[in-house]
Lab assay of single mutants.
Amino acid sequence: NLYFQGLKYMVPGARVTRGLDWKWRDQDGSPQGEGTVTGELHNGWIDVTWDAGGSNSYRMGAEGKFDLKLAP
């Protein structure tokens, strides 16, 4: 699974964008943008601060869902 392989790169400072299971509307800005991981992966959740200004926790394994992917 590509998403599980990418988890080791989901570290503080990593750049991310919305992924396969995104369901959080425009939390990442409008139009959709990139963000920066600000915390360690914990119980399948990870913290992100978006360039647009907001921050929140997103699923990276929790509930079998992956809200994020590494930015290109």
Rank of each mutant, 00 (worst) to 15 (best):
G6D: 15
V48G: 00
K65H: 06
L41V: 10
D47Y: 12
L68Q: 01
Y58T: 01
Y9D: 11
P72M: 12
E34V: 14
N43V: 06
K65P: 00
M10N: 01
P31F: 08
L20D: 14
G29I: 05
G19W: 05
D26H: 08
E34K: 11
S30L: 14
L70I: 10
T49N: 09
T17L: 12
Y58F: 02
T17A: 10
Y9A: 10
K23M: 11
V48P: 00
V16M: 00
L41F: 09
S30C: 15
R15M: 03
Q5I: 11
K23A: 10
W22V: 04
R15S: 02
G61D: 01
R25E: 15
D51C: 03
G35Q: 01
F4P: 15
Y58N: 01
A62V: 06
L68Y: 01
Q32C: 14
Y9W: 13
K8F: 11
S57Q: 11
W22C: 06
E63C: 14
L68W: 02
Y9V: 08
K8N: 11
G13K: 03
Q27A: 07
A71H: 08
L20P: 15
L41H: 07
H42R: 14
P72H: 13
G35F: 04
L68A: 00
L7F: 10
I46R: 00
I46L: 12
V16S: 00
G29Y: 05
Y3L: 15
T17M: 14
P72W: 13
W45L: 05
Q5V: 12
I46N: 00
A14P: 02
D28M: 04
A71P: 04
P72D: 14
V37Y: 00
Y9L: 10
P31H: 09
W45K: 02
T49G: 06
E63Y: 12
L70Q: 07
V37P: 00
V16W: 02
T36G: 01
G6C: 15
K69M: 14
S57L: 08
G53P: 00
G61S: 05
G13W: 05
I46C: 04
A14H: 04
P72E: 14
T49H: 11
D47S: 14
D47M: 14
Q27C: 07
A71W: 07
Q32S: 14
L68D: 01
D28N: 11
N56T: 05
G33P: 04
G61C: 07
P12C: 14
A52H: 14
S55G: 09
T17E: 11
D26S: 08
K23W: 06
R59C: 01
F4L: 12
D47L: 14
T49V: 12
L2Y: 11
A62C: 08
K8Y: 10
G53E: 01
F4Y: 15
G64N: 10
R59L: 03
G53A: 04
A14T: 10
R15V: 03
W50Q: 00
F66T: 04
Q32L: 10
V48M: 00
T36D: 02
A62W: 13
G53L: 02
N56W: 12
H42A: 12
G53H: 02
L68K: 01
V16P: 02
T36K: 04
S55P: 02
W24A: 05
E63M: 12
V16H: 00
Q5P: 15
V11R: 10
G19D: 04
V11M: 09
D67K: 01
L7P: 07
K23H: 07
D51Y: 02
Q32Y: 11
Q5M: 11
S57C: 15
Q32I: 08
L68I: 10
T38N: 08
G13H: 04
K8D: 12
I46D: 01
G53T: 02
G29R: 03
F4Q: 13
G6K: 11
A62M: 05
P12R: 10
G35M: 02
M10E: 03
L7G: 08
M60W: 09
A14F: 05
G13Y: 06
G33C: 10
P31Q: 08
D28H: 04
D67C: 02
K23V: 12
S30T: 15
D67W: 01
Y3R: 10
D51G: 02
A71G: 07
G44F: 04
K8C: 15
L68M: 00
M10V: 09
W24C: 07
R15C: 06
M10A: 05
A62K: 04
D28G: 07
E40N: 12
T17N: 07
P31D: 09
W24T: 04
N56C: 13
L2K: 14
G13F: 05
G29Q: 06
L7Y: 08
Q32N: 14
P12G: 08
L20Y: 11
G39P: 00
A62Q: 02
W24L: 05
G61A: 00
Y3W: 14
K65L: 03
G13V: 03
N43K: 10
K69D: 10
P12D: 08
G33Y: 05
E34P: 14
T38Y: 07
A71L: 12
R18V: 08
A52Q: 10
R18G: 03
Y9M: 10
S57F: 10
E34R: 13
S30P: 10
L20T: 13
V11T: 11
R25K: 14
G53V: 00
L41G: 03
K8S: 12
K8Q: 13
W45G: 00
D21W: 05
D26Q: 09
T38H: 06
A62S: 08
G39N: 09
K8I: 14
N43E: 10
P12F: 10
A52N: 11
Q5E: 15
T17Y: 05
F4C: 15
V11S: 09
S57W: 09
T38A: 08
G35A: 01
R15H: 03
F66R: 03
E63W: 09
R25L: 15
P72Q: 13
N1I: 12
W45N: 00
G33H: 07
K8W: 10
G35P: 01
G19C: 08
S55E: 09
L68T: 00
L7V: 10
L7R: 08
L70K: 05
W45Y: 06
S55C: 14
N56V: 05
S55Y: 12
Y3P: 13
T36N: 03
V48Y: 02
M60A: 06
Q32F: 12
S55V: 11
G44K: 00
D26C: 11
Q32D: 11
S30W: 11
G44C: 04
D47E: 15
L2R: 13
G35N: 02
L41P: 08
G53S: 04
R25Y: 12
E40C: 15
M10F: 15
R25I: 10
P12I: 14
W24N: 06
T38P: 00
L70D: 03
A14I: 08
W50S: 00
A52C: 13
R59P: 01
G39E: 05
W22F: 06
E63H: 11
G39K: 09
V16N: 00
I46V: 11
L41I: 13
E63G: 12
N56G: 15
Y3Q: 14
T38M: 11
D51N: 05
G6R: 09
K23P: 08
G64Y: 07
F66I: 05
R18A: 07
W50R: 00
G35S: 00
L68N: 00
G64M: 09
D67Y: 02
M60G: 01
D26P: 05
D47P: 13
K65C: 15
D26Y: 07
L7A: 10
L70G: 04
G54T: 10
K69G: 07
W50H: 00
D21F: 03
V37T: 04
K8T: 11
D67R: 00
K69C: 15
D67F: 03
V37I: 14
P31I: 08
A71K: 09
G64R: 07
E34N: 11
Y3F: 14
